[in-house]
């Protein structure tokens, strides 16, 4: 059972996702954000690359914090109940101490609930940052998880909770993991980016399975298209999945990507993305 986030107000948020990494999810989202004049959100917080292309002037930075228990030694009787209840092994009793392993803590509050001495409180610690800025008239925001931090979801949640009543294009994390699930809760339409390879098709099927859980409209964009009738196109036809656009493969595009250039600035890409943008508006 899946339900959307408790955000009654959000307008049309389009999530861009891909089962497979490296299909061009960021290329599609950054260029489409410009073509559609939509605000851009980079939720791929483990590898946030959207700003390398949009190059917004960052106007605000905010740290993302999570709670972690703190023990008042004067009150603690070393009963060990907190360590026992913690499913994540973030607390352990050793000698005359309760040791806290903060990176393992999920901030769930179970330890505080079982402490009979009221010796536990929560303090905040930083796990990442959120950057916001403006690029060519669109608002851009990105979450960046600190290296070595295991949990991305709090950064994603914080980032998405800042969405206002506007139209957004959301650059999702790759794969179909819980990071993506948490992002999709805020979306009411999805673009699945794939490439014409066997791996691309395999992972596209996984992404479709995921999106179907949300009962939101979705369509496919083929990046690095070879111009032919490939198996992705066949698959879409057979399964009545909307093909929203194709971006042809070119060495030039690959080069532009490699140096962080926006494809949309150059023909034929301006036309290509404008066209996809139009198709999306009609289809979703």
């Amino acid at each position: 059972m899946v339900y959307p986030a408790r955000q009654e107000e959000f307008k049309l948020n389009i999530a861009v996702l891909s089962g497979k990494g490296g299909t061009g999810k960021t290329t599609v989202s950054t260029n489409l954000a410009l073509a559609m004049n939509r605000n851009y959100v980079d939720c791929d917080v483990e590898e946030p690359n959207g700003f390398l292309f949009l190059k917004p002037e960052v106007t605000a930075r905010q740290v993302v914090t999570v709670g972690v228990p703190d023990i008042d030694k004067a009150k603690c009787t070393l009963c060990g109940a907190c360590a026992k209840v913690c499913r994540f092994h973030a607390l352990a009793k050793a000698g005359s101490d309760i040791v806290i392993f903060e990176k393992l803590c999920h901030d769930c509050s179970a330890c505080k609930l079982v402490c009979k001495e009221d010796a536990l409180s929560y303090r905040r610690r930083n796990i990442g940052i959120i950057e916001q800025g403006i690029s060519r008239g669109i608002e851009c925001s990105a979450g960046i998880l600190n290296v070595g931090e295991p949990m991305a979801v709090p950064v994603i949640k914080e980032l998405l909770s800042k969405l206002q009543n506007k139209d957004y294009l959301i650059d999702c994390p790759p794969g179909t993991s819980c990071n993506v699930v948490n992002t999709l809760k805020y979306a009411n339409a999805a673009l699945l980016v794939t490439e014409p390879s066997q791996f691309g098709l395999h992972d596209l099927k996984l992404a479709i399975e995921l999106v179907k859980l949300y009962h939101i409209p979705f369509g496919v964009i083929i990046n690095k298209d070879d111009g032919d009738e490939n198996f992705i196109k066949e698959y879409c036809k057979e399964n009545q999945i909307k093909l929203l656009g194709v971006i042809p493969y070119s060495q030039e595009a690959a080069k532009a990507y490699s140096i962080g250039c926006i494809l949309y600035d150059k023909q034929p890409y301006t036309q290509i993305f404008d066209h996809i943008s139009m198709v999306i508006k009609e289809a979703l």
């Binding site: 059972m1 899946v2 699930v181």
Partner: peptide, 17 residues
């Protein structure tokens, strides 16, 4: 009366309360 299995992290706080 539902629990969203995708969001639940299995911490058990709900069980306690």
């Amino acid at each position: 009366p539902m629990i969203d299995g995708f969001s639940c992290e299995g911490c058990g706080a709900c069980v306690l309360v």
